[in-house]
Design a protein around this nucleic acid. Structure first.
Length: 351
DNA sequence: TACCCGTGGCC
DNA sequence: TGGCCAAGGGT
């Protein structure tokens, strides 16, 4: 039981017989894989679902077919295209990484070389080395942690269990087809060895799984208790002229760093006053949940007589709400809804 | 080590 | 409905 060669053979056999989870990844045996596309998709997939990534990946590869194209892109356009995907430090690191790779001429082809690049950590460096360069590196993401914890019935809670899980995964990693093996482990975790209600009945590794034998597969991996999420409150100001809207580019680092946004305060450490001069009217509340806190953001709007000292006016004709992060899209949607309603009321009164 | 850092879907 | 979860990295 749990012979690495047996597990490798069963897993790769299963992988070869089934559809791949990532629709854009070439099937095994279809020639070399473009490191640029592997890198881009792996960075987008960090803590992000395949369904959410798909359209962004297609859009990025269409706009920028090579890492050299991406390296030449303007920061603001990359940030705008990333808007909505979350974890915006990834986008900032993406730009820096593309430029570093372009300066080097090509992607490094070892895990160590890849690890030195911005936004490429233990997981992503191993994934690119294994998938794009056929190196026998051990790829450990959340799926692999779960599969290995169950296979060996590891009851230690994460994140303390991580080193042990990595060591066990390393023992399973084959010298041949390491990239396919990594993707097979992740696909197994995504489709069969799922967090809740794992489909053990159709699992190719059911005979090798210690947790299954003990009847505790759905309970693993155990996790350390989470901290409660505090509720924060803040204000956001959406100012208009006849043909423009007031926006700003947020600070380079921190929450929603370097994204396009409406001026706001009270929730992100900043305590700036509302843009002035303006007669701000309260429109309502937008709720949003971040990783470590929830937010109630009060939305204000005002007609501006001239450009305030904070932010910049951009023409409404060219304004793209899609270039905003999700929180700011919610505020914009509320403003549109409420101002439309107010306009209707005015129209009714005037009849 | 323990935080910080988004968003959408699912049950 | 609210907590959980997702191909993590930076500090």
């Amino acid at each position: 039981m749990r012979d690495p060669q047996v597990i490798e053979a069963k897993l790769l056999g299963w992988y070869d017989r089934h559809a791949r989870v990532l629709p854009w990844r070439a099937p095994p045996g279809h020639g070399p894989t473009d490191p640029y596309r592997v890198w881009l998709s792996e960075v987008m997939l960090q803590q992000t679902t395949v369904a959410a990534v798909k359209a962004y990946f297609e859009r990025f590869t269409s706009l920028w077919p090579t890492v050299h194209d991406l390296a030449r892109a303007e920061d603001a356009q990359v940030m705008a295209e990333w808007a909505g995907l979350g974890y915006y430090a990834r986008a900032r690191n993406l730009i820096a990484c593309a430029r570093a790779v372009a300066a080097m001429g090509a992607f490094p082809d070892t895990r160590e070389g890849l690890s030195a690049l911005p936004g490429i950590g233990p997981y992503t460096s191993a994934a690119i080395a294994a998938i794009a360069f056929d190196r026998a590196e051990t790829v450990v993401d959340g799926n692999v942690e779960r599969v290995v914890a169950r296979l060996f019935a590891i009851e230690t809670a994460l994140p303390a269990a991580k080193p042990e899980l990595v060591a066990l995964a390393s023992r399973l990693t084959p010298a041949r087809r390491p990239g396919d093996f990594a993707q097979a482990m992740m696909d197994l975790g995504a489709t069969i060895c799922t967090p809740r209600s794992p489909a053990c009945g159709i699992c190719p590794l059911i005979e090798d799984c210690a947790a299954r034998a003990q009847g505790i597969a759905p309970e693993l991996p155990r996790k350390a208790p989470k901290k409660p999420k505090p509720l924060r409150q803040g204000q956001v100001w959406i100012g208009f002229t006849d043909n423009a809207v007031l926006v700003e580019t947020r600070a380079e680092k921190g929450l929603l760093g370097a994204t396009l946004a409406f001026p706001s305060a009270g929730w992100d450490g900043s305590d700036l006053p509302p843009p002035a001069p303006a007669d701000w009217q309260e429109l309502g509340l937008v709720r949003h949940v971040f990783t470590h806190f929830a937010l109630d953001l009060t939305v204000y709007t005002a007609r501006l007589q001239r450009a305030p000292e904070r932010g910049r006016l951009v023409p409404l004709a060219g304004f793209q709400p899609d270039a905003l992060p999700g929180l700011m899209r919610k505020a914009w949607a509320l403003a549109r809804e409420k101002t439309a309603a107010a306009a209707i009321h005015r129209d009714i009164k005037s009849l």
